[in-house]
């Protein structure tokens, strides 16, 4: 196993995103569709934070940007 880094985080983000997509497409129930949507939103936030942690560490854009959709 490799030392976890940016690619691991991005993989988790992508996997969450597509799990959310799968749920969104298979479910026919408003609340469960909303839950899948939450997964998708969270994968986006995870990506913001991961980029801020591993690539652009000189800016605090990630946490600020991920705080905005949560508000």
């Amino acid at each position: 196993m490799m030392e976890p880094g940016l690619y691991h985080m991005l993989f988790i983000g992508a996997a969450l995103f597509f799990i959310g997509i799968y749920g969104f497409l298979t479910r026919r129930n408003l609340i469960t569709m909303l839950m899948s949507l939450e997964l998708i939103l969270n994968s986006v936030c995870l990506n913001f934070i991961a980029f801020n942690r591993y690539v652009w560490t000189d800016r605090a854009t990630g946490p600020s940007m991920s705080a905005v959709p949560r508000i």
């Binding site: 985080m9 988790i12 969450l16 839950m35 939450e38 997964l39 969270n42 936030c45 995870l46 934070i49 991961a50 801020n52 942690r53 990630g62 946490p63 991920s66 705080a67 949560r70």
Partner: peptide, 24 residues
């Protein structure tokens, strides 16, 4: 779903973004 979101919060903690984790 909730436990998945808490796992993400754990990942934020792991990346030392405590504020983002707590808000999550």
């Amino acid at each position: 779903l909730l436990s998945s979101l808490i796992g993400i919060a754990g990942l934020y903690f792991w990346m030392r973004f405590e504020f983002a984790a707590a808000v999550q």
